[in-house]
Design a protein around this nucleic acid. Structure first.
Length: 582
RNA sequence: CGGAGCGUAGCUCAGCUUGGUAGAGCGCCAGCUUUGGGAGCUGGAUGCCGCAGGUUCGAAUCCUGUCGCUCCGACCA
């Protein structure tokens, strides 16, 4: 294609709206334009990249035995009510009404729709396994869209759903998708890693996120440099805190002492009290269905809410308000504890304590009386009715359970997620089949997502330099840019450029011919900004000696005879492709 | 939803404190020059100063409201 005819609105200056590098480049390279917050138009260049990524996904999904379908984005509410997610996912659901005042939802994902389809079409074990996928626009009512395509109200996702006759068979489907995901991201030129992920209220071990390490990511991953372990922080475990929990008795019974104005762990750790955070019991209070749940953690630990949700089997809990807490416990946040007035208190549903506190002695905690704390607390002796759970958030430097080495934490962008769902949706939406014994069973499901638009931005986040984007050749909008330095149609440079353009295009390459009547520097800068992997520059100067110039994006320029140029470009393109696709 | 910041030319931004005819650079258009790394000169076009009220003789500027955008936060007591 001719550059002069395409809409490629590159920007020399950085738009004020962009904060992170990939977002800036998305705009500067003329890939997208914002309609409004969280909604973007893909321009010709951006769309080309998007389609490249989609095609890689298609090829790998098909290769893995999945088949493509396309489901409605607009969905009736009743299937969401049947799955229970009209409630539990309510805050991200875009809800719309039609003229008859009937409520609909814009799909944030499609478990309900695909399961409804399968319920009607699949009745026998002979019809499985099946795996359906689609590439489609999803809608999520994000609290705060940000970072361009990273978190948007509307985004393109590849979602796949597997249906199997048994748990074992479902595990095989899961493994197939897991392997396919590795290939997809590799082919996109992305360094993406599988990490163990939170399985939420469904539970189980089969959930991995594919993440791209990046400072701008919204997720945190915990990993061991030996490669023995990697997990999302919501899921991660370690062999425990670096400072041990005290296990020595310090007194015969809990002793109340005055701590006026002290409402934080830090304040109690400071003068004049000097109680190390690791010797404090932090008491958090959550509300679930009108009653309170006490969550006990060591003072220096942070609650991992995902773990709490996993243990409770629901996400319908929230931090209790100060009023609720005072009504039930008699004290305000900051002076709370589980020792006094908690056991047998009908307003308290449950006391959960983090495993790290097992056997803790000589601890200090709130006295359930404003301005007072208790010391010499021994958790086994002084707090009744505890349920022990792993609830803490792992910290950097703690030891890996697999290798014993110190764990590291990095931020990362989640680009894909594979998840073994079990029978939650098939049971709720009646996707059942008859097995070989004529017995009715729910299908065992898995779901597998890739954020396509986010993946595009992740590729930019990972591939760029001071000049602009560096596209992997597999997803580049064009593989080759021919920069004609003199665009007079009758002149030799342009005639040669046209000839090379035709030859390369005939060979199946996607070539952009920069035929704009601009100065060379301007055109070089532009081709670098939009990140085309290979550039062929044709100008009078070197042409006098029969030479042209080839420059791989981010590599060294080489002068080459004009007759050898096409062959060399094909060679280089092949090398680049093989490096990614093997 | 809470907090903060910002809305002025296509883009980046100044002007606002202290009210008095709307500004710069880049981009765009025309011409000349230039022609291998975002050129130079000359001339030109471009604004509901986000929107709506209010104060005032007079508002981009002050006040109120509203809409939009960006950032931080929204369990960690």
């Amino acid at each position: 294609m001719r550059w002069s005819q395409l809409l490629i609105p590159t920007l020399k200056e950085t738009p004020a709206e962009a904060e992170i590098l990939s977002h800036k480049l998305l705009l500067r390279a003329g890939l997208v334009r914002k309609l409004t917050g969280g909604l973007y138009t893909f321009l010709p260049l951006g769309l080309r990249v998007l389609q490249k990524i989609q095609n890689i996904i298609r090829e790998e999904m098909n290769r893995a035995g999945a088949q493509e379908v396309l489901m409605p984005a607009l969905q009736p509410t009743d299937i969401w009510e049947r799955s229970g997610r009209y409630e539990t996912a309510s805050d991200v659901l875009f809800k719309v009404k039609d003229r008859g005042d009937k409520q609909w939802v814009l799909g944030p994902t499609h478990e309900e729709v695909i399961t409804t389809l399968v319920a009607g079409e699949i009745n026998s074990y002979r019809q499985m396994p099946k795996n359906f996928y689609q590439i489609q626009t999803k809608f999520r009512d994000e609290i705060r869209p940000r970072f361009g395509l990273m978190r948007a109200k509307e985004f393109i996702m590849k979602d796949a759903y597997s249906f199997d006759v048994s748990d074992d068979a479902a595990s095989e489907s899961y493994e197939r998708m897991y392997a396919a995901y590795g290939r997809i991201f590799r082919r996109c030129g992305l360094l993406a890693f599988p990490v163990e992920a939170d399985t939420g209220v469904i539970g189980g071990k089969f959930s991995h996120e594919f993440v791209v390490p990046a400072e701008t990511g919204e997720d945190e991953m915990v990993y061991c440099e030996t490669g023995a372990y990697a997990a999302n922080i919501e899921k991660a475990v370690s062999s425990g805190p670096v400072t041990p929990t005290p296990k020595e008795s310090t007194g015969g019974s809990p002793e109340k002492f005055a701590t006026p104005g002290v409402t934080t762990i830090d304040a109690l750790a400071g003068e004049p009290y000097g109680v190390p955070a690791s010797c404090q019991i932090k008491t958090l209070v959550y509300s679930l269905e009108g009653r309170l749940i006490l969550v006990l953690l060591r003072g220096d630990d942070q609650l991992n809410e995902a773990k709490l949700a996993g243990h409770l089997g629901t996400t319908l809990f929230r931090p209790a308000t100060a009023d609720e807490i005072v009504a039930v416990l008699g004290a305000r946040p900051g002076s709370l504890g589980a020792v006094v007035g908690v056991s047998g208190n009908s307003g308290v549903r449950l006391i959960l304590a983090d495993e790290v506190l097992r056997g803790a002695k000589g601890m200090t905690t709130g006295a359930n009386e404003d301005g007072c704390h208790l010391r010499h607390v021994e958790i086994d002796r002084d707090i009744a009715g505890i349920e022990w759970v792993d609830l803490r958030t792992v910290k950097e430097g703690e030891l890996c359970v697999a290798s014993g080495k110190a764990l590291k934490i990095r931020r990362a962008i989640e680009v894909g997620h594979v998840f073994k769902l079990g029978t939650k949706y098939s049971e709720a939406l009646d996707a059942k089949f008859l097995d070989e014994n004529g017995k009715s069973k729910p299908c065992v499901m898995g779901c597998y997502g890739i954020g396509v638009t986010r993946t595009l931005q992740a590729v930019i986040e990972q591939g760029n330099d001071g000049f602009g984007v560096i596209w992997p050749i597999t997803v580049a909008p064009f593989q080759i840019c021919i920069t004609a330095l003199d665009v007079d149609p009758a002149g030799e440079p342009m005639r040669l450029a046209e000839a090379c353009y035709k030859e390369l295009t005939d060979l199946g390459y996607e070539v952009i011919l920069d035929d704009r009547a601009e100065r060379p520097g301007f055109k070089f800068k532009d081709s670098e900004l939009i990140g085309i992997p290979l550039r062929l520059a044709i100008g009078e100067k070197s042409l006098k000696d029969g030479m042209v110039e080839i420059k791989p994006r981010g590599g060294e320029m080489e002068k080459i005879s004009k007759d050898a140029a096409v062959k060399r470009l094909v060679e280089l393109a092949g090398e680049m492709r093989r490096a990614l696709e093997g």
